[in-house]
């Protein structure tokens, strides 16, 4: 799905989080929102997912105005920075949650739910952990379960907030490839937030470099990784990717 962000601004009370930003994300792209802490990356991602509403501006999905759509109507697969797994449910029930929450008419039956959950567990390469609870998983496993849970609702896009932030360096490298593979297999337009320029450059098709200031986060440059490396658009970008 093609995502268009048109002059989106956001303030929280007196705090400016986003200066008006505009951005066009081609269908099927793997996009990184890259920037230092406080540059409005999470806010922008939450606005896309419908968890936050912009103070002004519009969001368009495939050309249709989606600004007023509720979270549920957005059908965005969202992976939280904390993963936010349901701690009282097994991995199986976590992944099945979105399917079981559907209205009766469109809810798949038990067999079908089990089939889909099994397929997702295979996709994240953890076929045997369905009966475990989140507290019994490693950080990397939790991240992948959160990803599977988000994919279970057959989302129109995938949004991930610092998906590798809580992991150690070795696991982080492995899971980067995991995300790339899942993106390629599902073909979903995917946006992930990171403050790690290596991660953004290595993984994304398109990198959006953001900076923060008193007047709110803004976009410094949008481009392919190699273009951002070879032609940084501002002193901020040059310094940030050199860091």
């Amino acid at each position: 799905m093609h995502i268009e962000i048109d002059e989106i601004a956001k303030t929280f009370g007196t705090t400016a989080a986003l200066h008006p930003v505009s951005l066009s994300l081609p269908s099927g792209a793997l996009v990184a929102l890259l920037g230092p802490s406080g540059s409005g990356k999470t806010t922008l991602l939450r606005i896309l997912g419908g968890l936050e509403f912009p103070t002004s501006g519009r969001v368009l999905f495939d050309g249709q105005d989606a600004t007023g759509l509720s979270v549920q109507e957005r059908r965005a697969g969202f992976v939280f920075q904390s993963y936010a797994l349901f701690r009282h449910m097994t991995v199986f029930d976590n992944i099945a949650y979105g399917l079981n929450a559907r209205p009766r008419a469109s809810r798949p039956n038990k067999v079908e739910v089990a089939r889909r959950v099994t397929r997702l567990l295979d996709l994240i390469q953890l076929p045997d952990i369905g009966a475990r609870y989140p507290s019994q998983l490693s950080g990397g496993q939790r991240q992948r379960v959160a990803l599977a849970r988000a994919l279970a609702i057959e989302p129109r896009m995938l949004l991930l907030d610092e998906p590798f932030g809580a992991l150690d360096a070795k696991v982080r490298k492995e899971l980067r490839q995991g995300l790339r593979d899942i993106h390629d297999e599902t073909g979903l337009t995917t946006v992930f937030v990171t403050h790690d320029q290596d991660e953004a450059m290595e993984l994304a098709d398109l990198v959006v470099v953001m900076s923060g200031s008193q007047s709110g986060g803004r976009i410094e440059q949008i481009g392919k990784p190699q273009d951002i490396r070879s032609k940084p658009a501002s002193a901020f970008v040059r310094e940030f990717i050199a860091a």
Binding site: L51, Q72, F78, F80, A84, Y97, G98, A101, A150, I153
Partner: peptide
């Protein structure tokens, strides 16, 4: 966070509370 996650998965307010 867990409640927000449930909402992104399509749950209604009551379903979030209940489950």
């Amino acid at each position: 966070d867990q409640e927000q996650a449930a909402v992104t998965l399509g749950a209604s307010g009551w379903q979030v509370f209940r489950r």
